Simulated assay, not measured.
Amino acid sequence: MAKQSIFGRVAQLAKANVNAMLDSAEDPQKMLDQMVRDYTDNIAEAETAVAQTIGNLRMIEEDYTEDVQASSDWGSKALAASSKADEFRTAGEAASADKFDSLAKVAIQRQMQAESEAKTAEPTISSQREIVEKLKTGLDAMKSKRHELVSKRDELIARAKSAQAQNQVQEAVKSIDIMDPSSEVGRFEEKIRREEARVRGAAELASSSLDTQFNSLEDLGEQTEIEARLAALKAPNSAPSLTTGSEQ
């Protein structure tokens, strides 16, 4: 029953539709990891069962071979005893002849017993050989399926990591998007623009103040000239001059 149970699990696992199971799984990676572990455990268990079945088969085969050989040996002994009995009977030694005929009968009986045992073992050997072949086939199917699962798991993990890496890159690009006014770069650019505007305003203000000072100087020069001329008019013995700043 144990061997049949293991063989049943081998057949069931070998026929498993991996793609369908992946479609219905919430976490394919964890499911595949668990399936790989289950397959590995069942393979080890099935290998033990196959080894035990093969060992039992070899024992039965050895017993069968011994029975066949014993049948042949007892047949030879029966023939030898019968021939000896015939010799004694020809020689007129009836008692000795009967003795060897009795030995021949015993040998024949042993021969028949060995033949019966060998014949009884034949269907068992045939059945055990069939079971061994089925178990070996099941094991090969399981190993093939396990290889498929491992490949599928590795592919899935690689795809998941690739998708995760692409998502991280996209998120990183979003976080440094200089066109985003709310980003750090946008705020820094706006700060620089305000500082540049402040510098231009200060320069413009400074320029305006300088022009005012020069205009004040010009007004001051004109007033000084007026005061000087007025003083000259009031000075004694002074005559008005029509030409500004000219003397004879």
Rank of each mutant, 00 (worst) to 15 (best):
residue 132 V to D: 09
residue 133 E to G: 09
residue 133 E to H: 01
residue 133 E to Q: 05
residue 133 E to F: 01
residue 133 E to C: 00
residue 135 L to D: 06
residue 135 L to N: 04
residue 135 L to M: 14
residue 135 L to I: 13
residue 135 L to W: 03
residue 136 K to T: 13
residue 136 K to R: 12
residue 136 K to A: 08
residue 137 T to L: 07
residue 137 T to F: 04
residue 137 T to G: 08
residue 138 G to M: 05
residue 139 L to T: 03
residue 140 D to L: 09
residue 140 D to M: 13
residue 141 A to K: 08
residue 141 A to L: 13
residue 142 M to H: 07
residue 143 K to H: 07
residue 144 S to G: 11
residue 145 K to M: 07
residue 145 K to N: 04
residue 146 R to K: 11
residue 146 R to G: 01
residue 146 R to L: 14
residue 148 E to D: 15
residue 150 V to G: 00
residue 151 S to F: 10
residue 153 R to W: 07
residue 153 R to D: 09
residue 153 R to G: 01
residue 153 R to M: 13
residue 153 R to L: 14
residue 154 D to P: 00
residue 154 D to M: 02
residue 154 D to S: 05
residue 156 L to H: 14
residue 156 L to V: 05
residue 157 I to N: 06
residue 157 I to A: 07
residue 158 A to L: 00
residue 158 A to W: 04
residue 159 R to N: 02
residue 159 R to S: 02
residue 160 A to C: 03
residue 160 A to V: 14
residue 161 K to M: 00
residue 161 K to D: 02
residue 162 S to H: 06
residue 164 Q to Y: 09
residue 164 Q to T: 15
residue 165 A to N: 03
residue 165 A to F: 00
residue 166 Q to A: 14
residue 166 Q to F: 08
residue 168 Q to M: 13
residue 168 Q to Y: 09
residue 168 Q to C: 10
residue 169 V to T: 13
residue 169 V to P: 06
residue 170 Q to K: 10
residue 171 E to K: 14
residue 171 E to S: 14
residue 172 A to Y: 09
residue 172 A to E: 10
residue 172 A to R: 08
residue 173 V to W: 15
residue 174 K to E: 05
residue 175 S to F: 05
residue 175 S to V: 09
residue 175 S to R: 11
residue 175 S to W: 05
residue 175 S to K: 13
residue 176 I to K: 06
residue 177 D to T: 14
residue 177 D to F: 12
residue 178 I to E: 15
residue 178 I to S: 15
residue 178 I to T: 12
residue 179 M to V: 12
residue 179 M to E: 15
residue 180 D to K: 04
residue 181 P to H: 03
residue 181 P to I: 09
residue 182 S to A: 07
residue 182 S to T: 14
residue 182 S to H: 11
residue 184 E to F: 05
residue 184 E to I: 02
residue 185 V to K: 01
residue 186 G to L: 12
residue 186 G to Q: 08
